[in-house]
Design a protein around this nucleic acid. Sequence first.
DNA 1: ATGCCGACAGGATGTCGA
Length: 260
Amino acid sequence: MKLATWNVNSIKARLDAVTAWLKEAAPDVLAMQEIKCVDDAFPATAFEELGYNCAVHGQKTYNGVAILSKRPLEDVTPRLPGGDGDDHARYLEAVIPVKHGVIRVASIYAPNGNPVNSDKFPYKLEWLERLRNHAKKLLRHEEPLALMGDYNVIPTPDDCHDPKAWENDALFQPQSRAALRAIENLGFADAFRACHAETHQYSFWDYQAGAWVKDHGIRIDHILLSPQAADHLKASGIDKQVRGRDKPSDHVPVWCELAL
DNA sequence: ATGCCGACAGGATGTCGA
């Protein structure tokens, strides 16, 4: 089965781009982030017409995550445990039946965290720690699990064009990178990195300063696979051509293929 | 330099993203 994640930067503004990509890429599951709409405004019908079931955890104007799946979505659960008073819609989890058992998937939109000297940065780090705690519990199921989304973390200097340009940014702080590594170190594989040794492969290019034309990107959208999922990993990729189309999101789809 | 672009809410322009 083919799994994908895509920060669409408003599903309302991106509906045509998303349906076009779904038709050509035909993923079994798509985790979306930054849908920027409430549940009732989510264009579920357009996806149902393409054969997808929808699970939505929306929010007005900001954030919002969703999961599309050709197979049924069961045990749909929004929100990470903990974080009293955190009302951001940044996490959605579901269980999907497969041939022999299930796969559990999550759509993740981690906080940006800028500027570093504001309370947004500790919120980012606390959120990633909540994700780590939850991921640790999920691993106890010893089942295929894919934590997919916009982690807002550049893992290494080789995952951006110019590390100097990012050294003061929340996405590249040592604490942010350590928080992502702490999740991976529980036993997750970065699907793209597991399949590709080449560096400077990006999933985001800023709208500003000609970042796309100059290939000044960063790799911040990741698919983390539990051992039971990674054992079936066949391929992974980044559909960067999508960034060159009309009215693009600033992120592109990242996908992986599992023999499940 | 903290903007450049783009989406949103609302009805001008400030907030947010990364």
